[in-house]
Simulated scan of single mutants.
Amino acid sequence: MNDELIDQRVLAAARAELGANFVRILGYFREDGVKSVRAIEAAMRDQNATAMVLPAHTLKGESRQFGAEMLADLAEVIETIARSCVELRDVPTEALEHVARLRPTFDATLAMLDRDTNPLATRRPTGFGKRPVAL
């Protein structure tokens, strides 16, 4: 699953494009993502499709910026279901299984991003004069 969480090419492109701002913008993604996941879960508990649309849309877009494709795809499914329910004046029960997968996917994605972007990652020495290898 971890190999599917982050598209490394997109992440590398974001890092290159954002340069010195990368870590700061990644922090915003973390903060916004936590808020979006909470809002989506609350909307699901309240059976409120309208309240689900914007946080799912936001999470989808921000996830794609960092190559978090699995998370973005999940948010997109939730957004699509919610929009359909708004149009049909229905409750978003169909989104339940996707919302249930959202937090674990978000948490795993953040862990992977932290591992891939942390300049202080644990290093394993390979011997005198050799470059350390990331664990």
Rank of each mutant, 00 (worst) to 15 (best):
K60Q: 03
A49I: 01
H57N: 09
N2R: 09
F22N: 12
G33R: 05
G19W: 03
I6K: 06
K60S: 11
T117Q: 09
V10P: 01
A42C: 04
P125F: 09
N48H: 07
L74H: 05
V99N: 02
L59Y: 04
G33C: 06
F66M: 10
S36A: 15
E76G: 13
E97C: 10
P55D: 07
A49E: 00
A39R: 01
D32T: 09
D73F: 05
L18P: 00
S84V: 04
P132V: 13
E41H: 02
E62C: 09
L113R: 08
E41Q: 09
T122H: 06
E4N: 14
D3H: 02
E17C: 08
I25F: 11
T126C: 13
R115C: 06
F66G: 05
L26W: 04
G61R: 13
E62P: 01
N21D: 14
S84F: 00
A49M: 02
L88W: 01
V34E: 15
V53Q: 00
T58P: 02
R30D: 15
G127A: 15
P125I: 12
L11Y: 07
V23D: 07
D32R: 14
C85L: 04
E62A: 13
R38M: 11
R83K: 04
C85Y: 00
L120H: 14
G127H: 13
T105M: 04
L113W: 03
L96T: 15
V77P: 07
A20H: 02
E87N: 11
I81Q: 11
T93P: 09
K35F: 00
Q8F: 08
D46S: 10
L71S: 05
M70Q: 12
L59V: 02
V86L: 00
L74M: 08
